[in-house]
Amino acid sequence: MRLYLRRQEEKKIASIKNWTLIYGRRKTGKTTLVKSALKYDTYIIIGDVNNAITQSDEIVRIEKALEEVKRTLKNGGIAVIDEFQRLPEIYWSLIASWAPSGILVAIGSSYGIVNKVFDRNSPLLGIFTPLEIGLISYEDVLSQLNDPVLSVLYRDPWIIPFIESYDELKKRIKEFSLVAKGLIGEVFKEEERQLTDLYYKILLTLGEGVWRSKEIAGIIQREEPTVTSMINKLAKMGLVSKILTLGKENYYKVSSPPLSLILYAESKYMVSERDALIEELPIGREVQFSIGEMLAKYFGGQLYYFPKEDIDVVIVKKKKPVWAFEIKMGEITKSEALNSIKRMSKVSERVGFVSLKEKPDDYGDLNLGPKELMQIAKELSS
């Protein structure tokens, strides 16, 4: 499916006024955003340590490509260097000597490049400002798609050309399990690391829904400090996110919703090695966190999860829970609502219900169905 989704980050990129390093995990749409929103004069891609690709798809030596960049900057223009993490650091001092002429936008498909560029010994320190590009916000996708489930999957741009529905993801899960491992391997390569079996096991376990580092350590039979250290490294690569909780322990999840579901299928059913008909994936948990993120922005707070009472979404402002939400894929019955109110009222005075099927009855202080979610998404996205 060929689809371009507008993103709030377009405004930031279109209004760039100084040298900027745009960074983030591979395949999150950085290049597409820059090409769509930025009016640049010169654009090159660093292919390897020796070669670059120009706007006209010509492969040239890096030195020749950088000469074109220099010429553009000296004339007060805007130049883009894509895949900046591949550019040998020997050229960094040369590039620094061109500042502050023009506007240079560097795109790096890794998080490690940030540490290098802004290291105290880097010749580029004090020249660039950083701009992170992560997953597409749920509100940006939902406001254009009007499909609350598919919008969760489309938050990670790499999956967009391949599927047009959640059912298609399930039907083609074997294909995507192979693609996903390749994508993860590519992320590791750009971060100058090796995707070992241990890292992959941790990702599979997280995808299966095991969120506590202590439990993960027990499953893969490693010391908890070692596992926690590896999870933190995965987080720095943009593959894993920390889940804030009202408890004492840290929880973690795979950041990308489609990647999380694919890893779940691989962990539970080994779909890459056999044909398996997957009737259902834990899409509900991905919906829970995506909607939770959107509601947290809407109310100006932070998203939390409360494992003790299993409350889907808690929104915290100034260290105080102000909202608790129950989120369901299907309808919410009166008995379910009453039980949820008992649990949620222990945490927050205001409680709400979200159903992707239809607007719930007036059980809580706020009751949201698909139409109401769409209105919130449009308001935030605009």
Rank of each mutant, 00 (worst) to 15 (best):
R2N: 05
K11C: 02
K12H: 01
K17W: 02
R25N: 04
T32R: 02
Y43H: 12
Y43K: 08
V60I: 11
E68F: 08
N75R: 15
I81C: 14
R86I: 01
P88L: 09
S93G: 00
I95C: 06
A96S: 13
S97H: 01
I103M: 13
L104W: 02
V105S: 05
V105N: 04
I107K: 02
S110N: 10
Y111D: 06
P123W: 10
L125I: 12
S137N: 10
Q144D: 10
L145R: 05
P148W: 06
D156L: 09
L169R: 09
K174R: 15
L183T: 00
K189F: 15
E191I: 13
E192L: 14
L198S: 00
L203T: 00
G209C: 14
W211E: 13
K214G: 00
E215N: 00
K236R: 13
S241D: 11
T245M: 15
V254W: 10
V254L: 13
Y264F: 15
A265Y: 06
M270Q: 12
L281P: 00
L281H: 00
Q288I: 10
S290G: 05
I291H: 14
L295C: 05
V314I: 15
I315S: 11
I327D: 11
E336Y: 12
L338R: 14
K346E: 14
S348E: 09
P360A: 07
D362A: 05
D365V: 01
L373W: 08
K378A: 07
S382Y: 11
